[in-house]
Simulated assay, not measured.
Amino acid sequence: MDQVRAFIAVAEELHFGRAADRLRMTQPPLSRQIQRLEATIGVRLFERNNRRVDLTEAGKAFLVESRRLLGVATAAPEVARLVAAGSVGVLRIGFTAASAFGLMGAVLNRLSDVMPDVSVELREMVTRDQLTALDNREIDIAIARPVVDPEIYRSRLLTSEALVAAIPAEHPLTRRTRPLSADDLTNEDLIMHSPLDATYFYDMVVRLLPVSRWKYTHTVSQIVTMVGLVAAGRGIAIVPASASQLGFGAVRFAPLMTPEPQPVELHAIWRQDDRRPLVHRTLQELRPDALV
């Protein structure tokens, strides 16, 4: 790199004496550095005589690349420090569709505020697929439901919310002034979470609202699909409160009486063996108190 700096100085000054002064060295060792550089790359970089110094065509091309190389070398230590601090890089975040109703906006705003040089790639997946992606190193952090193996993953609660009933706007239950109970849903047509593809919500609903006479009209995996079916008059759905942000005009959302007031959780999930600074810096910023 000293030879490159020497070359740039001579190329810009076109005078060995001035270049030597600029580099705070004497002229003979500067001339030797240029001679060694020319011998190494096998071409003449300068045309020189007793009166003037000029760049050859090869020298002009080499000057462009030398400046680029010196810029990279100068920036490299700072880049290394930023990487070690988790301040630059590409962060791959998986997220559930339901988390986009509110939480993901807060997550992205927080990261752009405190880590502006980090590029965030988003991948929408159900929790099961997010865990597979973590295993395959395809994502760095999952925003998902808390159904994880503590031997492999770590997780942190980001937000929790209530369950509500999504009801067709003209349904008689929309006129109730109190929270709905499990008994209110007996014999109603219900749009239910899939026990295979939406296990988290299915298990929660049957645990917290053990309705004795369920009548499933449809079984689906996505919250937005459920609310869309409610809007079409196909039945009632039990969904997280944030689903009210979907903006379906033909749907009303009623509070539910449940043993746990806010049972629906979203967690940040990552692999226990992930030691990368960028991941851990991100996790420092993804705290419930910071996502408001």
Rank of each mutant, 00 (worst) to 15 (best):
P29N: 04
F62D: 01
T56P: 04
D21G: 10
K60L: 11
A11Q: 04
R18E: 15
K60F: 03
S87E: 13
A20D: 03
N49F: 03
G89H: 09
E65H: 09
E38H: 02
T96F: 00
V79Q: 10
G86F: 00
R51E: 15
E47Y: 14
V88L: 14
V88Q: 11
L70C: 04
R52Q: 13
G42F: 13
E57R: 15
E57K: 12
R68C: 05
V53N: 04
V79F: 13
T74C: 01
E47T: 12
R18I: 12
D54P: 01
V72F: 11
E13G: 06
V43A: 05
R18L: 13
R92P: 01
V53L: 08
T96N: 07
G59V: 11
V43L: 05
E12Y: 01
A19I: 04
I8R: 02
G42S: 11
V90H: 09
L30K: 06
M25K: 08
R48C: 11
S87F: 06
I41M: 07
I8T: 07
T74F: 00
R81W: 03
H15A: 15
L82A: 05
L70G: 00
G42A: 09
R32G: 08
Q27S: 08
N49W: 03
Q35L: 14
N50E: 14
E12A: 10
V83L: 10
I8G: 01
T40V: 03
V10M: 05
L82Y: 01
P77F: 02
I41D: 06
V83K: 12
L55G: 00
V43I: 14
R32V: 12
L45T: 06
A80T: 08
S66Y: 01
E12M: 06
F46A: 04
A39P: 02
G42T: 13
Q27A: 10
R52W: 13
I41C: 09
D21C: 09
P29W: 04
L55V: 07
A9S: 12
Q33E: 14
P28H: 04
I8C: 05
A98P: 00
L37S: 07
R51D: 12
I93C: 01
I34A: 07
R18K: 14
A61D: 15
A39G: 01
R68D: 12
A9Y: 01
A73N: 13
F95G: 03
V10Y: 03
V83R: 14
T74K: 12
L91M: 09
R22Y: 03
H15F: 07
T96Y: 00
M25S: 06
E78C: 03
T56I: 07
A80G: 06
L69Y: 15
F16K: 06
L45G: 03
G94H: 02
P77H: 04
S87G: 10
L45V: 12
E38G: 05
A75K: 04
H15M: 09
L70N: 04
G17D: 11
Q33S: 12
A58S: 08
R52I: 10
V64L: 14
E57T: 09
A98E: 08
L70R: 10
G42C: 05
R48Q: 14
L55F: 04
T56A: 08
F95P: 03
A9H: 02
L45F: 08
L14Y: 03
G42D: 12
V88H: 10
A75D: 13
P29T: 07
I34N: 04
V83H: 07
P29R: 06
F46Q: 00
A76S: 12
S87R: 08
L91A: 02
P28D: 06
S66A: 15
